[in-house]
Design a protein around this nucleic acid. Structure first.
Length: 419
RNA sequence: GGAGAGGUGGCCGAGCGGUCGAAGGCGGCUCCCUGCUAAGGAGUUGAGCGGGUUUUCCCCGCUCCGAGGGUUCAAAUCCCUCCCUCUCCGCCA
């Protein structure tokens, strides 16, 4: 959520920055300003009325004590009239505020000035590459063929149980999945200073509002039908909201959290995309990294975060590249995002395996995560999140990059002690 | 799921329908005292919003005592609904 005071005081700046994402936001800012104007007018009127009412009410107490019954009764009449007006204005205010809040919650974050301007992923900028894609002396197979031949990936039974984009893994695949999770968590907790967290995967709507999935992206989420709970699309949701509605002490910052959780996404709107294999599933495992930091540290922390995620691929010896997302490809809550893309031999291209973002105070404002600074002032923290990494996609990358001519594949050295 | 108890400021804990944003204690901060430390003394210390003034100083107002409704001129205080925590029972991985 953007600061309404920023929108109010500098609408042209906000419009200009948001138009790098999509031109349509200009109109939305105007609507917000209009609603804000209306809202504040009502508040002013209401507060004056309430102040007056409170004053008279206090008088009534005094009058009764002094035995001045008639005067008190007269004053009551006066308050009655005020209450009628107050009720009416409050109803109006409620409506305006509902509209205002919805609008404000529907505006995406402002891209950082360093973010390249562009329309879509075509204009993302490659920052660096690591490793050399392997030259095969045979035609590399896609992971689904390797998996089916080995009998460790079962798409048919996945579909039988749950429908398309659900997979069953047996033996080796299941075991590597588990090994990868342990390997990643160990790396981040032992080498990078993260605290391992285990969280619920069903959360309340306000939690999803905090990180920006609601109210705008409800169709991407799975909702439980008998209760007001949603399955998390990423552990970023539960980790970031750990400190919702809290005022932290400055000394407590930064906080580094990592968690393994399954993630659930409806993948509405991606029909026909990546339908084969385990690249895009409704349920997948991910080890997530979340940082809660002081505003002045957040961009240094973002660079560190990307390196920490990259480290996983380096140790697994999987070739990858880092790209910076352009304004048009930036996620809703992000100010700046680096994607890490791993080499996928069967597709002869790099595919996203991690996304690392600084949301600045966008989520902090929504979730009300603050800290008390040295002067005793409450300020919003900055929050960051990144995949460290998407586990299923890592498994797929291992299977394809480490495949052998005989149809099997090798296990990366660092994983062997986890097997 | 059943029975009972309870949800008040960073924490603990009082609270009669008006004088309660809330006693008291702890903690924090500032100052005094002290050679240092400890002890002692004085003061101060919630959040959000709107407005004024203007900027990082303050002033005025509104709202907030789990959440949402209701009664009343007036609710932390009375009533209803919901949520959560604790104890006991039941059920269960």
């Amino acid at each position: 959520m953007l600061d309404i005071k920023l929108i109010r005081s500098n609408p042209d700046f906000v419009k200009e920055r948001l138009s790098t994402r999509d031109k349509a936001y200009s109109k939305m800012i105007d609507e917000i300003l209009a609603a804000d104007e209306e809202r504040r007018g009502l508040i002013r009127e209401l507060e004056d009325l309430k102040a007056e009412k409170n004053r008279i009410s206090k008088q009534i107490g005094i009058l009764f004590r002094e035995g001045k019954k008639e005067e008190a009764e007269k004053a009551k009449e006066e308050v009655h009239a005020k209450n009628k007006k107050i009720d009416q204005l409050e109803k109006e205010l409620k409506d305006v505020e509902k509209r205002f809040n919805y609008l404000l919650l529907s505006v995406p974050n402002i891209p950082h000035p360093s973010v390249p301007v562009g329309e879509d992923e075509e204009e993302n900028v490659e920052i660096r590459k690591w490793g050399e894609p392997r030259k095969f002396d045979f035609e590399p197979l896609p992971h689904w063929e390797i998996g089916e031949k080995m009998g460790i990936l079962d798409f048919e039974r996945g579909a039988k149980l749950s429908g398309s984009r659900f997979t069953v893994m047996y033996g080796y695949a299941a075991k590597i999945e588990r090994a990868l999770i342990n390997f990643m968590l160990d790396l981040h907790t032992k080498e990078h200073g993260y605290t391992e967290v285990w969280t619920p995967v069903l959360v309340k709507p306000e939690v999803l509002k905090g990180t920006g999935q609601l109210p705008k992206f409800e169709e991407d989420l799975y909702k439980v039908c008998d209760e007001d709970l949603y399955l998390i699309p990423t552990a970023e949701v539960s980790l970031t909201n750990l400190h919702a509605n809290e005022i932290l002490k400055e000394e407590e910052l930064p906080k580094y959290y990592t968690a393994y959780t399954p993630c659930f996404r409806r993948e509405a709107g991606s029909h026909g995309k990546d339908v084969r294999g385990i690249l895009r599933q409704h349920q997948f495992d991910k080890v997530e990294l979340v940082k809660i930091v002081r505003p002045e540290d957040s961009y240094i922390e973002l660079e560190k975060l990307v390196k920490e995620a990259e480290k996983v691929l380096q140790l697994l010896e999987l070739p990858y590249r880092v790209v910076e997302l352009c304004t048009g490809d930036l996620g809703f809550s992000a100010s700046k995002t680096y994607d890490i893309e791993v080499w996928v031999p069967s597709q002869n291209r790099y595919r996203e395996i991690s996304s690392c973002s600084n949301t600045e105070d966008f989520q902090a404002r929504r979730a009300k995560i603050r800290y008390k600074d040295k002067d005793g002032k409450n300020r919003f923290v900055h929050t960051l999140n990144g995949s460290g990494l998407a586990v299923g996609r890592t498994l797929l990358a291992v299977m394809e990059n480490y495949q052998r001519k005989d149809g099997g594949f090798d296990v990366p050295e660092v994983l062997k002690k986890y097997m």
